[in-house]
Design a protein around this nucleic acid. Structure first.
Lengths: 308, 308
DNA sequence: GCAATTCATTCTATAAAAGTGAACGTAATT
DNA sequence: AATTACGTTCACTTTTATAGAATGAATTGC
């Protein structure tokens, strides 16, 4: 390998982010043959493939992912420079946050609090998608962080970095009209109508095991994957709900709903998943070490030791 | 400006660091005419000069310095990538430390302590030079940090960042044979032989004013700019010495020398000067926030409040 | 299951770029 | 005043990038 050709690397960066040669060629306003040739040259110089040609699509190899990480650092900084040269000021790029569709909006909101009331002038973008798509976007550096309540499984060629942000107990939530129900498990709960998380959720499993243990025979009115939806149903269906209290924070405060008790040993975990990279978006670094996170983690630690 | 040409930028980087077109062209194994043309194109694309042609030399403009900062981030990361691709491992580049020749070696050593006994496998390079040369090297990104006891004056086009590391009291140091001398200012000090810092040093000024104030009439045996030399003279000349205690830390500990008292309101400041950059060498970040620095700064704060 | 479609690769010719070397212009040096 | 050091300019050559057409291989649609 002679000297790294930064234009080849630039093309690689664009293609790897896009995941598609034809579309990238169009964006770059060159022919796909040219683009293909340039990327081949890069691979040839390096001596190893960056893409695996699977069928008619390009998939990053492990090395490809590594190189993409570097390229991301290099060209993000380059884009910043270009902006500076054009406009005379540096504006931080938006922080791109991906959230799992089914997550609690309240949780997300409190996570982003420093951004909202921030002295920072930077903007952010937020998108809600299913988990696999989020991880794809993350791998391609289309987003900076994924907020999820599902653990990520380790992948061969991508170095995820997963930070536990918070651990919420699952609570039994009742409408105001049912606040006669006791604040502990009791035969009164034996035959009740419930709205519960979807069966894909670990919360649901915990709830089911809790029912079995205490011989509850719940009538499941609705099972819903989406926490925002679950919240509405908890509020409006008249049924009991099993869910993390944070989801209905506002309603608990206003008294529309009331929490009866926590389901023991049932937790929802919240994770921030990022790629292992040298240079993190400065706003993200701020969020991940914000005092709110510390508070949550401390509380989490207490919960855990309480559980003992 | 179309799209940033990274090869132009690369050449610019090399030339700006070297400060000389001909030599850079030779290193890059291209003709200087080619190099000149490429850099002209970069400037033409940007629309503004990056170098001022002063006589027969190239001097970075203010914009040039800004661009160099970005280029440094970009291509240092690129070099890392190349190394990874070639050797399969990432080894941190050496941390390049510039020290003012006249500084206390003990101070430098304690500053670098985390590096020496570090779990880190990274190496460092250390060079001692006069202040202006150090600042030049820093501006050209040839070194990562300058350790100095002389304040840096603000420059038009370079954004220095100067961090006060430590503040050392100036002490009166005596050979073991003279430890009969009192531990406070006393007529006994009126006629003594002294070795003292050179007249360029603020320490010397402080010492002189101290002498005037207490009507001492010192016989100056030697005045020396270099702290390492001063240390040797303090140890071997038999004369008293005015210097920061840290310089002769070892001798004080072993009892070869003894500290009589601190000269009031006379301090030597130690600064770490860096360029304002987004991505600092990781080892440097470590050093600048090491517990040793905290300790020193705390002690400094106490000294300062003591002085009140 | 066969055409149509999508997406990447390969090949050749051409256009664009980066490169050389000699000549030139200035400032500093002797 | 001659020499040297260093950067620029110019005419020319070499290298590299690109377009476009042809090819191949995997999906998609009927």
């Amino acid at each position: 390998m002679n000297r790294l050709n930064y234009h080849h690397l630039y093309y690689f960066w664009r293609v790897a982010k896009q995941g598609n040669l034809t579309a990238t060629a169009e964006k770059l306003a060159i022919s796909q043959s040219a683009l293909s040739a340039q990327i081949n040259q890069l691979e040839h110089n390096i001596g190893q493939p960056l893409f695996a040609r699977e069928g008619r699509t390009l998939v990053l190899t492990e090395l490809g992912h590594t190189v993409l990480n570097y390229a991301e650092d290099i060209f993000q900084r380059g884009e910043e420079l270009q902006q500076l040269l054009k406009r005379g000021v540096i504006t931080l790029p938006s922080l791109r946050i991906g959230m799992l569709s089914s997550m609690s909006r309240n949780f997300i909101e409190s996570f982003m609090e420093p951004l909202l009331k921030g002295k920072t002038d930077a903007s952010f973008r937020l998108l809600a998608r299913p988990q696999p798509e989020l991880l794809d976007l993350l791998a391609q550096h289309q987003i900076d962080v994924v907020l999820t309540n599902r653990e990520v499984s380790l992948s061969d060629d991508i170095a995820w970095q997963s930070q536990l942000l918070s651990r919420q107990a699952v609570s039994v939530i009742a409408p105001a009209a049912r606040c006669d129900l006791p604040e502990y498990i009791d035969p009164a709960y034996k035959h009740q109508r419930w709205v519960v998380p979807g069966s894909a959720s670990p919360l649901r499993a915990a709830f089911e095991s809790f029912c079995t243990q205490h011989q509850l025979e719940p009538e499941i009115v609705a099972e819903v994957d989406d926490m925002a939806m679950l919240r509405l149903l908890a509020r409006d269906s008249g049924a009991l709900a099993a869910m993390p209290a944070v989801v209905v924070r506002d309603e608990l405060q206003s008294g529309v709903l009331s929490k009866r008790f926590d389901v023991p040993n049932a937790f929802e975990n919240f994770y921030a998943v990022t790629l292992k990279r040298k240079f993190q978006h400065p706003l993200l670094s701020e969020l991940l070490q914000s005092p709110m996170i510390d508070a949550i983690q401390q509380a989490t630690a207490e919960q855990q030791s309480d559980a003992h």
